[in-house]
């Protein structure tokens, strides 16, 4: 099976679902991203929900909590850190659903940082096998 087997409509969340998200940066064509990782984080949440690990309603609520907490910390509400909050909400969600945990995510993050430091330019960055 390849990704092209999936039609666009199956893949992309419908407009109604997107509209249910608090203050999602978007234009007429859908969500917009400032950096590639934001699209990656966006896709992860959409796919996890599509696979039934949590409902979209649960997701919208988790994201709203994270945005509210940020506002209470006095962060400017200009959307510039939207996907940082999205990512934080996603990390909390996968932890609460027992899909991963903070220690595991942290260790993996360090492993990737290490892989970048040790990979020559022009070579794909890959995790080194650990014992």
């Amino acid at each position: 099976m390849s990704a092209s087997d999936l039609t666009k409509s199956e893949l992309q969340p419908d407009p109604e679902r997107l509209a249910s998200l608090p203050s999602l940066p978007r234009d007429q064509g859908g969500p917009v991203f400032a950096e590639p990782w934001q699209a990656q984080a966006f896709a992860l949440a959409v796919r996890l929900s599509a696979e039934g690990h949590f409902t979209w309603k649960e997701w919208a609520a988790a994201l709203a909590d994270e945005l509210k907490a940020a506002a209470q910390r006095g962060e400017p509400d200009d959307g510039s850190r939207y996907y940082e909050h999205w990512l934080a909400a996603l990390e909390r969600m996968v932890t609460s659903k027992n899909l991963s945990n903070p220690a595991e995510m942290d260790a993996r993050k360090e492993a990737w940082a290490d892989a970048y430091r040790h990979t020559e330019h022009g070579k794909p960055v890959e995790l080194r096998k650990t014992k």
Binding site: E35, P36, W37, Q40, A41, L44, Y83, E84, L87, L90, E91, V94, S100, E104, M105, D106, R108, K109, A111, W112, A113, Y116, R117, H118, T119, E120, H121, V125, L127
Partner: peptide, 18 residues
């Protein structure tokens, strides 16, 4: 060597690979 991406990019990559 490659430039190490900023924290949120690394965390996203970590989560995705896991």
């Amino acid at each position: 060597h490659q430039v190490v991406p900023p924290d949120p990019a690394l965390r996203t990559k970590a989560l995705e690979s896991l």
